[in-house]
């Protein structure tokens, strides 16, 4: 059995090795891009079923952001919505035979977590100013500065590890069961992985919202 944590370059573009998570992510991007363009090609004032589903999805994302941040959700809608959709689709890609979810690789999770970290810093400085954002690290006292800095790093790291651990473990377990039991036995575990993937996508998106909201301070 191959180590699920190991990664091999499928091909190279110049010096850049193109690994499977990157290729699968491109596939997901293509799927989401084409699907979105097709689904939103004819939006009308009286929505059809598909448009109603899309509007409900956007509305739910907005409501979650509004409930968490107590702010207008429009500046954060794209970031949070994209994170959720990508993580959800990436986690669910495990049901396609031969496809390993990109989120089962720590590089993908780290990239997402670093984007969240960058967004946290960006929105924190944008809404509080540089001094205000930095002074937030001295809350409630300057003694807390090291702990707050460490918290900033560890919670980003926790984002990475949580998503990576859950998805990778699922893939790992399915791989082990598949190698030991047979073709159809891992199906219940794959279904469980779908549920776990959905929950992890939601958790990742909500935690990103919470971190960004916390960085912006009280409204």
């Amino acid at each position: 059995m191959e180590n699920p944590l190991s990664m091999h370059a499928l091909f190279h573009i110049g010096p850049v090795p193109i690994t499977e998570p990157v290729v699968v992510t491109w596939g997901i991007m293509l799927f989401l891009g084409l699907g979105s363009a097709w689904a939103t090609r004819r939006l009308t004032m009286v929505p059809g079923k598909l448009q109603a589903v899309l509007e409900m999805f956007v509305t739910v994302i907005d409501d979650q952001i509004r409930d968490t941040m107590q702010r207008d959700p429009s500046p954060f809608r794209v970031l949070i919505g994209t994170i959720f959709l990508y993580v959800f689709i990436a986690n669910s890609s495990a049901i396609i035979p031969g496809i390993e979810p990109p989120t089962a690789m720590i590089e993908t999770d780290a990239a997402l977590a670093l984007i969240v970290l960058a967004a946290t810093i960006f929105y924190g400085i944008r809404y509080q100013g540089l001094r205000g954002y930095l002074s937030a690290f001295a809350e409630p006292s300057w003694v807390m500065i090291p702990l707050n800095v460490i918290e900033q790093i560890t919670r980003t790291f926790s984002l990475i590890v949580r998503l990576f651990g859950n998805v990778m473990s699922g893939v790992f377990v399915v791989g082990i069961i598949l190698s030991l039991a047979g073709f159809l036995v891992p199906i219940p575990l794959m279904a469980l992985d779908l549920l776990t993937g959905t929950v992890q996508a939601y958790i990742f998106a909500i935690l990103a919202t919470v971190f960004i909201g916390a960085a912006m301070g009280e409204h």
Binding site: M7, V16, P17, I18, T19, P21, V22, T25, W26, I28, M29, L32, G33, S36, A37, A39, T40, L43, Q51, L54, E55, F57, V58, D62, S74, R77, V78, L79, G81, T82, L85, Y86, P102, M105, E107, T108, A110, A111, L112, L114, I115
Partner: peptide, 25 residues
């Protein structure tokens, strides 16, 4: 891979913003 995935994430942000979230919103 980490860098490419980060770039991919940014590109996906633009794609979904342009083709999904903005039109629907």
């Amino acid at each position: 891979t980490l860098g490419l995935q980060a770039v991919n994430a940014f590109v996906l942000l633009w794609i979904l913003s342009h083709f999904l979230f903005r039109p629907v919103a």
